[in-house]
Design a protein around this nucleic acid. Structure first.
Lengths: 362, 362
DNA sequence: TGCAGAGACCGTAACGGTTCAGAACCAATA
DNA sequence: TATTGGTTCTGAACCGTTACGGTCTCTGCA
């Protein structure tokens, strides 16, 4: 007794006594054969348990995978825990849907240097979202001969780009606080590089940050506050490797412990800011009377909390990335899409402690 | 001048004067050739711009795609808007990550009957999440000769299954309300079939519902309340095709308009329940004094709102589905994983109007 | 009757790899 | 010296399909 190999297009053709081309046409170009023959082909296929043309073989031949790869440097599951990432994913999914393309989430564990997953991904293009600029996975993507769009990345030769003007956006926050009178501030930022450094960040690490977004925001803050006469080197900047509210809280605590005199805490994400709010509450600090706190992103939870922040169009970012990738792509120079941002004046920013007395006092 | 075709394994081998096998080994089995030759191969590859073995061709030969397909009947982007779906995705992503597999989101527009996207997906298996049991995409998946795991689906021959006991879970809610004294209730449920029916649901449509989860929950409610002497045929059940808080609100309104005498509103999802809460607030109804409202799922927002609901382990569901699919799969009988649920006593369920007087009155 | 043109079907050549059973070579052992 | 064993590399088969450029047959019209 022989092992019954699964039916293929060829075996089906043999069974029917027609050519493979004809069977292929039965599935892909019904107009190329008579309805009667097509019916017979399909019926025999059913009888033999032939499931239709193999998608991989078809991809090989047509050179189309019908899917877009998404590379995130975070653990895959992280993408579903961060509201900003979710918004981005939704936008990207929308674009893929429109183009009837699949969306392949490529596992890229930041702790392993193993880029095999990138090499194995059968996709027609890549979107790279917020990875450090020295990430080996990013390098692996760039080696693949498929179009690529990077998000929140520095300019890169021959690759399309989507992002916002992080420096300008955070400058709005800075100027707002400067106008309110803040001069003694602290900063809580996200991971700056692939190595874990949960603590204060010396200026050289700030400048050498491998996450373009964080680097730009810190640079924007430094420039703005320097213009206002603040010695940036004295400003406490605390970094957190993980991204959740507990980290925001502990980072805020770290700054407040060392420098209780600060009047404002600028966080480079809403999640961190929400954590900082928790810590302020825990310490009995009133916001904004005792402490001003600001965020970045404009996620839903921030709105509910009345956070002063910058809203960036995360969904639009994802959609733009998808469109850029899927648009009939004349190999011209790389395109860049820069989306707008908006300063949201919430209720967590006010004049610094003592300012009222000075302004309205006797 | 000739168009330079992209380098392939064969052209690289020719250039080096070695066999294709050797080049292949240089990438896949470094121990099969001398380090020196391997170095030469890799260097020549770099020089020729050879990006390494083509993933699709490799998949064809090895019969492994390195990815898992996820089929949702909703628009792809919906998955990122529904908290329960996000939780599921996160769990599934975790399982994929562990197994170093990609996760391909297959676009399956419920309005098109076009199942080509399922046929085109180059994956080693499918997870099907909460689709109607008559969905053509589901049928297409089942025809593919790859292992499949369905979630929240009725039992299906030869396919693994993950789910909860919806009927038992909702029965807990029902019994809780029955004990509190509720006899006049209304029900708000999610989409029951592929056709849109925003309104009251006659009993036959309830029984014929194509979404297993909704059907089971309605059946559980019907049985429990019938045992308590309630004539189920008189219970207003309202269906909503879309799934968001506005729908929950309008469905609640529809029931309250027709039947202001009801004392409890049972919703088959937290999202709908949150919408119902909004509508109650709008009408000036106190919850739970004037109206009891319950949900299902146990999402974060529900907890914040103090909703009485059933918590189901959505993340665990996704993870279980992934594990089931990826576990070395001896072709035994189909396996079923049924996860536990927990009744969450929030602050939105209380005795019906007037009950207090009867219990605690003079 | 001859011939053009349309419709239906086919043969061949890729597509770009992996795999497996050896061949060739060399050093060590009996 | 013959045998053994190990390393390194090769040849050919195979994975399942689609693209391309035909051929063949039949119909309708001059």
């Amino acid at each position: 007794m022989h092992v019954r190999r699964p039916a293929t297009l060829a075996s089906l053709a043999a069974e029917l006594g027609v050519s493979r081309t004809t069977v292929s046409n039965a599935y892909n170009r019904p107009d190329q054969l008579s309805p009667e023959l097509r019916r017979r082909v399909l019926e025999t296929a059913r009888r033999l348990g032939y499931p239709g043309p193999d998608p991989v073989a078809r991809s090989l031949r047509t050179r189309k995978a019908g899917a877009v790869g998404l590379l995130l440097t975070e653990n895959l599951s992280y993408a579903f825990r961060d509201p900003a990432a979710i918004g981005f994913l939704e936008g990207l999914a929308l674009a893929c849907e429109d183009a009837n393309q699949g969306l392949l989430l490529v596992p890229a564990n930041p702790e392993k240097e193993d880029v095999a997953s990138v090499h194995r991904a059968g996709v027609d293009g890549f979107v790279v979202y917020s990875v450090p600029d020295d990430d080996p996975h990013l390098a692996a993507v760039l080696e693949r001969p498929v179009p690529t769009v990077v998000c929140d990345q520095p300019e890169l030769a021959s690759v399309d780009r989507v992002g916002i003007d992080d420096e300008a956006a955070i400058t709005q926050v800075a100027n707002h606080l400067i106008e309110l009178g803040h001069r003694r501030i602290g900063v809580v930022c996200m991971r700056l590089a692939r190595d874990r450094n949960d603590g204060f960040v010396p200026p050289d690490r700030q400048r050498a940050a491998h996450f373009h977004v964080q680097r730009s925001r810190l640079a924007g803050l430094a420039a703005a506050f320097a213009s206002a006469g603040v010695d940036w080197a004295q400003v406490p900047v605390v970094e957190r490797f993980d991204h959740n509210t507990s980290c925001g809280a502990s980072a805020a605590a770290q700054i407040l412990d060392r420098d209780p005199g600060i009047t404002a805490l600028i966080c480079t994400s809403d999640i961190l800011a929400l954590g900082a709010l928790n810590e302020a509450r825990r310490r009995g600090l009133r916001v904004p009377q005792d402490l001003t706190i600001t965020g970045f992103d404009g996620i839903h939870e921030a709105e509910r909390a009345g956070l002063t922040t910058v809203r960036q169009p995360v969904l639009e970012k994802g959609r733009a990335a998808g469109k850029l990738l899927l648009d009939a792509h004349e190999r011209t120079r790389p395109r860049t899409v820069t989306l707008g941002t908006e300063l949201i004046l919430g209720s967590t920013a006010g004049p610094p402690r003592g300012a009222e007395e000075r302004w309205f006092g006797p």
